[in-house]
Design a protein around this nucleic acid. Structure first.
Lengths: 343, 343
DNA sequence: TTGAAAGCGCTAACAG
DNA sequence: CTGTTAGCGCTTTCAA
């Protein structure tokens, strides 16, 4: 760095004390206008940039929060990040984004970073937390979109079960009765809730949910493809699929087509999230939209309140979801249900 | 935070000086084993976590770098991030990811963050830099994938012109002669180079490049769709498209199909980047792969060398690209070239 | 309205 | 091998 100009250099040049320089920069009204002007001129002339590190150290705060996501490869988190970043930067915070890679050890690592005061707080968007930490004195944390059963923490949620039911209901409304589900990595809470929604909607429609029509995925494109293979291998007929996220839905569609089934002609597919995949997909994907940016906004708001000490430890915000109709779903053929055995 | 245990508390409990505690933690071999053990026991017992902030302050370093990308919505950067993060974390650095949103003012903001010592250095992956900064004393910066004409900085690059030519050549090899190009946001250097590659390959094949077959995009899906509309509006026949990134290629394919053209039956399409879009696409996209993770690894290596003062200011690393053949391209029909006027 | 001075927690000479 | 000590740059009482 070119500059090692510090507050003392400015004070010397302006012929005042360092305290006055500090005040000029932080509480200008406490300083006589003429003095203030002199100081500011010296600041400009010397190109003085206050050292944030020293300031943070002195104040025992970093003005930085860490946003830890389950898997940064999922574009879903990018819009969440934008929401977090918008709120953060207008409140004077910085955001560090971390990638948990679905690994509790990495979650641990990031918690330690807060303990070491690299950051003031941690926003968790990971499905699990190291068990041994559940009871220790945790640093300021808030949770988004995940539910950590071990611990009461401020949380931003969506109604995953309701949303799963909504997706399934849409397919039922189109006349489908044999509806498969590609789930997330159960037994994680979020994934379980979406399965429950599928189950519930079917049951309420008087159709006994057949668990053999559910296949466990891991939210990756490849797992969506594999799930279709598995469904065909099981040999049960189905005319629609509800996938627990868009990437798996896209994988499923590609695999269905590769096997000669048309979408939505033979099989309707619903996704979840409304990421860019839903739009990029051919056909465009009917999906359950989560308000990603708004979720980020909300969780960062909670974080700030938490850091400023004014937040109930179990505050919970539930965000709405919305079914977005596109072209990957259509009415069921009256007769033909896709039978795996037939192909 | 529960703990405000500091090094002095540990020293007191262990009956040693703070220096000994510090050494035990940082240079254990300088401490007699028994002393070391006592100290470590006290550290554990008190749950002492060294305050990174104080440490950084004392050392005048933050062990943090900022990775600033052009647009965080592009999944391309996610794998780069992973590469950066891997190298960073094994060298004891943290990574802050910032989103420039193609806005020079935001680049400025992040440069200031380094000036204020929030971070030690800045990795730039943005197409432009505020002009007024070009000559000021800049903090440690390295550049990846972009070329900033205003300034000599250590850089990781790919050969965009060569890669553009490679993509075009592939289409030529398949017998296509009327090859359109959907470019990035020219006149940015990267985009211009890819256009130049297209032009060069055509010229070398003895086909005069027709500039009316190039349409300017902005790397977004929507701009790929719009580009196809524009090409049809211009009315020139073409049987292949080379798009300057995968997202635009996917947009183009979807639009082509919506207009009744089959891909690759009627029109072959080549993308650029090999992001997850290339795999998610139907048909899977032939594309020019950039080694994203390796680019991240390399640029973080340069950053570390730069921070440690051992790096030529104009160091340049060129990474290889590779054409990945998938199903969005095929041999040109001997007769039928897609004529816009005909549909 | 301003200045003097005491640290925030840690590291690194330097001296023993 | 260990202790003493002087700060890193800034903010914030407390006095003047």
């Amino acid at each position: 760095m070119a500059d090692s100009v510090n507050i003392r250099d400015v004070a010397a040049m302006a012929g005042v004390s360092v305290a006055t320089v500090s005040r000029t920069l932080k509480n200008p009204d406490l300083v006589r206008p003429e003095t203030r002007e002199t100081v500011l001129r010296c600041v400009a002339e010397l190109g003085f940039v206050p050292n944030a590190q020293a300031r943070h150290f002195r104040r025992q705060a970093t003005d930085t929060v860490i946003l830890l996501v389950r898997d940064i490869s999922n574009p879903f988190y990018l819009d969440v990040f934008k929401g977090v970043e918008d709120v953060a930067s207008s409140a004077g915070y910085k955001v560090l984004m971390g990638d948990a890679r679905s690994d509790p050890a990495r979650v641990h690592h990031y918690i330690d970073m807060v303990r070491e005061r690299h950051a003031d707080g941690l926003i968790l968007m990971t499905g699990s937390m190291p068990v041994e930490l559940a009871d220790a004195g945790l640093p300021p944390m808030v949770v988004a979109l995940e539910y950590l059963p071990t611990r009461k923490l401020p949380t931003v949620l969506i109604d995953n079960e309701g949303a799963g039911a909504k997706a399934t209901q849409h397919l039922l409304d189109l006349g489908h009765t044999a509806i498969a589900h590609i789930s997330g990595p159960v037994p994680e809470v979020m994934s379980v809730a979406r399965v429950a929604g599928w189950r519930k909607a079917l049951a309420e429609a008087g159709i006994p949910p057949d668990e053999r029509l559910t296949v466990r995925g891991d939210f990756s494109l490849a797992s969506g493809e594999a799930a279709v293979d598995e469904l065909f291998a099981r040999g049960l007929p189905f005319s629609a699929i509800f996938a627990a996220n868009d990437e798996m839905a896209v994988g499923a569609i590609n695999r269905l087509r590769a096997r000669g089934a048309s979408v939505p002609g033979d099989i309707s597919v619903v996704g979840f999230d409304d990421t860019i995949f839903a739009v990029a997909c051919n056909p465009p994907l009917t999906t359950v939209r989560q308000p990603q940016r708004e979720i980020g906004v909300e969780v960062m708001r909670l974080m700030i309140e938490r850091l400023e000490g004014r937040l109930a430890p179990d505050a919970t915000v539930v965000m709405p979801t919305e079914l977005i109709l596109r072209s990957s779903t259509t009415v069921a053929k009256p007769d033909a249900r896709m039978a795996a055995g037939q192909r």
